[in-house]
Design a protein around this nucleic acid. Structure first.
Length: 848
RNA sequence: GGGCGAGUGGCGGAACGGCAGACGCGCCGGCUUUAGGAGCCGGUGUCGCAAGACGUGCGAGUUCGAAUCUCGCCUCGCCCACCA
């Protein structure tokens, strides 16, 4: 008889095991553990109030890997914390009158509890909270290091301003064609403000080098495009007016210089004021003023018609010695290149449109060999066989060669040089809001901006402020906070009231995890040497040009300041996909499509939710929420529950079979099968063992590659094989026990509770999560007989069942002997026989 | 406008250039159950009684053999976008 087991009800055991794991501290990562370290990191979340299903999705993947690596004998650190500075806390305070401190603390408490219900192996003893003074003290210390190294500076600049959030934004935080705020979606405007920056641009070149790290291609590509390196030349165009400096332009196509028939300056270009002639001045000033008033959206729109104003002055084309008019136009951006261009309408679409509108000459100077100048459009091809025409001594030269030759010629004359330009700008880090780390600077009337002495850190964020957004920092409303003193002369000095961008906090939290309780330094160098760099970092791809860029910059800058001795923070990065709402939109409270995991776990238990999330599809893909198959995953765990507790089985409808019980104990379990036992049972147990060993091989590989969906499908196959084996009377045999134990160990990372429960019920030692990962026997993985497809002209026509070591000659003989093959050959000899060992045979007919 | 990625059953999705559709959902049939639910067994790409034919967005190509590689289209998604 199949014995009765208790009904499968995860609610009876899940919470109990979680409590025991926490009490026993089994996930603590010990600095002194002699085994090899493995640092697994998943992005710490913003404590928005409730854990949603996306948090589960993001955390379960790396948790599975962490658990497997631990079972494989590595000393795993898998920490968790909270990115707890930021605007939502402040907005909640404004909307609901809760103080940001309290709002944040309540949310963290709540989310910590919810996180624990997932059964993830986070080492909570290492938790960091970025809004805690014990953390931001060191964020401030880091700012001072950057300041002292010349990597933090304050400058007046035209910056992006979000009118709704009343705060400046970094360039990376302005998104989309309509230039909107990354947080609230409001279109940004330009403002001239004095702001703090980190000098990211100094690291532009090194940030382009991904050779030491294993990151997803799309991520590397996005960063590369964002950094936007362009190689070209800077060229001086002499101004016609006497006593005026030449105007320098940047171009990637110096080979087209003979076609430069005008010059365009950005309206903000500093030469505009001196070059503009008196009769053009009124119009020019009006245009400049209008350009400054316009929003970024209006200015940057590509669809917009080009417009500009002639400033009355002329420059000299250094190659043709022609006089060319100087214009200003807002399609030339002040912050890129030199803020000035040579207008080559024949070879640039924008210049072409501008020239057509203002009737400027268009001269084609680079064409395909033997080609003719197009009419009505610019020729912007970049193929290698373009050739210069009408270009003086360079006529006939290939464009690629001309780029170097013309640049060299200009360099010899002292009128230009090869140059590299980047799109990336320095990182704007100051914010005019309350809930962030105060920038540790004081302003002395005599000594200017001075860093707060390190011994006086942290500069505490005062509780008592009016944080209604007014466009100036709320900290200005607190007189006591404002009153600092100059570290040089001791006289009263006003404190900086801007706070740091929260991306500064997250640019180093992975370092703090290494020694989170160190009160004397940002990190203990020994601990950082022990744990860093991160072996695998997982998180959402939405941070591609934000956090990933900043964190790399931090590590490289700190290395150059001799605070770190490695180049890259994250050796491998993988992005999980996003779980969308059932309506295929991003989950958001306003859409009402947010899925709350608490409801699901109370119905199905945490294991089912974990497995279901991993089964949805490829982890890096995500997808819309569709809970219809969660029942199937729950049923699977129910089958695991059943097969793992079967100690004997009744052969089902197999006439003439001896009772299964009689076999129990006779089969030692490692291949030594009693010779006289019924063949069917022998085959069954060998097949079961093969299934188990295959699963060990493949599930381990899949976990390592983060292919959780296929790993689970293979665990389902093993479970189904166990179910069939039980029904064939194999429960109680050694092979059966081996397969059940393999199943439990392999499933443990994904479903930690049920496997612990079943492991314990089998009388195995606590904890399954501290057992060694199973190993497979390669010989066990191969089948005794394989089925070989036989194709005729690439189409499947028959199958052969042969031993894996059958010779090719024998396989060919068997294949040609097939009636079905002969039906297509019609007595002729094959033209060719293709064999892929172990895979298939293809017989090519002579054809008609 | 530029770049990147993806198109496979009713659905989520499998498939080192080698048996397309693993695994699961759903559906159909059966067993069990007073019923509902749950469970178990079998079936399930399309057309066809069958033999068989046809099938991975469309069209070409490479190959003995293509979902997979190449080229050209179409559709969807993401990123960047007057970056000289």
């Amino acid at each position: 008889m199949t014995e009765r087991t208790e009904r499968f009800d995860p609610r009876t055991y899940e919470a109990g095991w979680r409590e025991r794991w926490a009490a026993d501290d089994i996930y603590r990562a010990d600095d002194d553990d002699p085994r090899d370290k493995h640092y697994l990191l998943t992005m710490y979340p913003y404590p928005s109030g409730d854990l949603h299903i996306g948090h589960w999705y993001a955390a379960t993947g790396p948790d599975i890997v962490a658990r497997m690596r631990r079972m494989q004998g590595l000393n795993v650190m898998f920490p968790m914390g909270f990115d707890s500075f930021g605007l939502p806390a402040e907005n909640a305070a404004i909307d609901r009158g809760v103080h940001p401190w309290d709002w944040t603390e309540q949310n963290i408490d709540r989310m910590r509890t919810q996180f624990r219900s997932m059964g993830c192996m986070f080492d909570w003893s290492r938790e960091v909270v970025s809004s805690d003074p014990s953390y931001y003290r060191w964020t401030q210390w880091l700012f001072i290091q950057f300041f002292n190294a010349g990597l933090a500076y304050k400058q007046m600049a035209a910056v992006d301003w979000c009118p709704k959030d009343q705060v400046v934004l970094a360039r990376e935080q302005v998104e989309g064609a309509d230039r909107h705020c990354w947080r609230c979606g409001t279109p940004v405007v330009k403002r001239d403000l004095e702001q703090w920056f980190f000098r990211v641009t100094r690291y532009a070149d090194e940030l382009l080098d991904f050779s030491k790290i294993d990151w997803p291609d799309p991520l590397r590509l996005m960063q590369t495009n964002w950094i936007g390196r362009s190689e070209g030349s800077e060229i001086d165009f002499a101004a016609e007016a006497a006593g005026v400096d030449p105007i320098r332009v940047f171009t990637t196509r110096p080979d087209t210089i003979f076609g430069a028939t005008f010059m365009v300056l950005a309206p903000e270009h500093r030469a505009v004021a001196t070059l503009t002639t008196d009769e053009r001045r009124a119009e020019v000033e009006a245009y400049v003023a209008a350009a400054r008033r316009e929003t970024e959206i209006e200015r940057m729109s590509a669809e917009r018609e080009k417009n500009g104003v002639f400033i009355g002055a002329h420059a000299i084309n250094p190659m043709t010695d022609e006089r060319i008019p100087i214009w200003i136009a807002d399609y030339v951006l002040p912050g890129y290149g030199t803020g000035a261009i040579m207008g080559v309408p024949a070879h640039d679409q924008r210049d072409y449109a501008f020239a057509v509108r203002y009737d400027l000459p268009i001269r084609y100077v680079v064409l395909p060999p033997g080609g003719e100048a197009p009419t009505g459009e610019a020729f912007v091809a970049h193929s290698a066989d373009e050739v210069l025409v009408d270009s003086g001594e360079f006529t006939g030269m290939a464009a690629a060669d001309a780029i170097a030759a013309i640049t060299e010629e200009l360099a010899e004359r002292g009128q230009g040089e090869a140059a590299i330009t980047y799109k990336i700008r320095d990182w704007l880090i100051s914010r005019q809001r309350y809930w962030g780390a105060p920038i540790p600077i004081v302003y002395c009337d005599e000594h200017g901006p001075q860093p707060v002495p390190e011994g006086q850190l942290p500069v505490l964020l005062p509780r008592d402020v009016d944080f209604a957004p007014t466009g100036v920092s709320p900290l200005q409303s607190n007189a006591a906070f404002l009153a600092g003193s100059c570290p040089i002369c001791g006289k009263p000095a006003r404190r900086e009231t801007d706070t740091l961008d929260t991306f500064v906090d997250s640019s180093w939290y992975f370092l703090r995890y290494c020694s989170p309780h160190d009160e004397t330094q940002a990190w203990d160098p020994v601990a950082v040497m022990r744990w860093m760099p991160v072996d695998l970092y997982t998180g959402g791809a939405e941070h591609a040009v934000l956090h990933f860029l900043y964190a790399r910059f931090f590590v490289k800058a700190l290395r150059d300041m001799h605070h770190l001795d490695f180049d890259e923070p994250f050796m491998a990065v993988r992005n999980q996909g996003q779980i969308l709402g059932a309506d295929h939109h991003r989950m958001s409270k306003s859409r009402g499509n947010v899925v709350n995991p608490d409801d699901l776990t109370s119905r199905f238990g945490s294991d089912t939710v974990r497995c279901f999330l991993m089964f949805i599809g490829p982890w890096d893909q995500g997808g819309p929420w569709n809970p219809s198959s969660i029942e199937g995953v729950h049923r699977f765990l129910g089958r695991v529950w059943g097969v793992a507790q079967a100690t004997s089985g009744q052969p089902r409808a197999v006439p003439g079979m001896p009772p299964a019980q009689s076999l129990a104990g006779e089969i030692p379990g490692s291949g030594g099968i009693a010779p006289d036992v019924v063949t069917a049972v022998e085959d069954g147990s060998r097949g079961l063992r093969r299934a188990a060993h295959r699963a060990i091989k493949e599930v381990g590989e899949d976990y390592g590659e983060l292919h959780f969906n296929t790993a689970l499908s293979k665990l389902m196959e093993l479970t189904n094989a166990l179910g069939a084996a039980r029904d064939d009377g194999l429960a109680g045999t050694g092979a059966y026990a081996e397969a059940v134990e393999a199943l439990l160990l392999l499933l443990a990372p994904m479903a930690p509770h049920i496997t612990e429960e079943l492991w314990s019920r089998r009388g195995k030692p606590y904890s399954i999560h501290q057992q060694a990962w199973p190993t497979f026997d390669a010989a066990m993985v191969v089948s005794e007989m394989i089925e070989l497809p036989v194709q005729v002209d690439g189409k499947l026509r028959d199958r052969l069942t042969v031993a894996p070591d059958t010779s090719p000659e024998e396989i060919e003989r068997l294949a040609l002997a097939s009636d079905r093959v002969q039906a297509y050959l019609k007595g002729r000899a094959p033209r060719k026989v293709v064999q892929i060992p172990g895979r298939l045979v293809n017989i090519v007919t002579p054809g008609d």
